[in-house]
Simulated scan of single mutants.
Amino acid sequence: MASLLKTSSMSVRTKLIHQTGLSLYNTSHGFHEEELKTKLQEFPGGSIDLQKKENGIGILTLNNPSKRNAFSGVMMLQLLEKVTELENWTEGKGLIVHGAKNTFCSGSDLNAVKALATPEYGVALCMFMQNTLTRLMRLPLISVALVQGWALGGGAEFITACDFRLMTRESEIRFVHKEMGIVPSWGGATRLAEIIGSRPALKVLSGALKLDSEQALNLGMVDEVLQSSDGTECLEEAQEWLKQFVQGPPEVIRALKKSVSSGKELCFQEALQTERDLVGTLWGGPANLEAIARKGKFHK
């Protein structure tokens, strides 16, 4: 029997997807993370707040309302800290990301942008935020971006790192990078092309299109337009929407997310091996045996 369970060793790329606390970049890439972190500390303002609920749903809040929840340097650092915390939240099943005071995020704080306006800093910031949002995307949590008000620039990029996106009727998504003389730098162009296709993505980016809720829904960029516009009610509606996908034991929901992440990012054989490994952690386990017993009762 043991011979049937032998599998080839996991590839480096497979390990990278499923290990926690591991950066995409290191000094071999010319990236010195600690130096950049020291520099980002010079730009305070706002906060990233995280609430982990007993039902396994986390609420991540971008909180800098005086600047439409734009990311300060300190907020970028805090986001990485919260993602690391979520990587280690073994009871977690879902995550909702939203902005304070009825708006999502307007990108980066211009004070930090102006002070870091060199190609070297631009690439370093790019690598830092790509790392953070890729790790958020790979979390074994089913994630939802709740877009109220504006999701502009980096805010528009952020929502592409979540599994699903919900909008209110009055909200707007816009990739304004072209008008700033740059391209998306947090992984947003790559993820957008994967979500809606390369041709629609090129139109959205090159036209700096203003996408209202109906347009975003038609493009397949968002999954549903919410009924409410009130901040508190929207958050409650988003949680109810997410609950349909996170019902069940955390180990099952987390394994499902890992299997889909592997299928998206790994080659076919590596993804199949990941699926085998995940089956090995669940088959014959408590949730599986309980479900079998429950189904048996239904058929009597």
Rank of each mutant, 00 (worst) to 15 (best):
G153Y: 10
G155D: 07
Q148Y: 05
P140M: 00
D109W: 06
D163A: 07
F128L: 15
P140W: 06
V113G: 01
E157C: 05
V123L: 11
K114M: 02
C126Q: 15
L116S: 09
S108C: 00
L141A: 06
W150Q: 02
L152A: 14
G155M: 11
G153L: 09
Q130W: 09
W150F: 07
M127V: 02
T160L: 09
S108M: 12
T132N: 07
A112L: 03
S108D: 08
F158D: 10
T118L: 07
L141R: 10
V147F: 02
V144I: 06
V144H: 12
K114V: 02
I142M: 10
M127W: 09
V147C: 15
G153H: 13
T132H: 11
S106T: 12
C105K: 04
F158L: 15
A151V: 11
S108Y: 12
A115F: 01
S108G: 00
A115T: 01
G122A: 06
T134V: 05
S143K: 04
G153K: 05
E120S: 09
C105A: 04
F164W: 09
L125M: 15
V123I: 11
R135K: 13
R138N: 08
L116Q: 03
L133K: 03
L139S: 07
E157S: 09
G155S: 03
T132A: 11
G154L: 04
P140D: 12
L139D: 12
L146Y: 05
A117N: 05
Y121E: 05
L136Q: 15
R135A: 12
A161L: 08
G153R: 07
A112N: 02
S108R: 06
N111V: 05
T160N: 13
I159P: 00
I142D: 10
S143M: 07
M137N: 14
F158P: 05
A161N: 10
V144S: 12
I159R: 11
M129R: 15
V123C: 05
D109R: 03
M127I: 01
P140A: 03
F158I: 03
A161D: 03
Q148G: 13
I142W: 02
L139E: 11
L136K: 12
S143D: 04
Y121K: 05
K114P: 00
V123S: 07
I159H: 08
E157M: 08
L136G: 11
S106F: 11
N111C: 00
G107C: 10
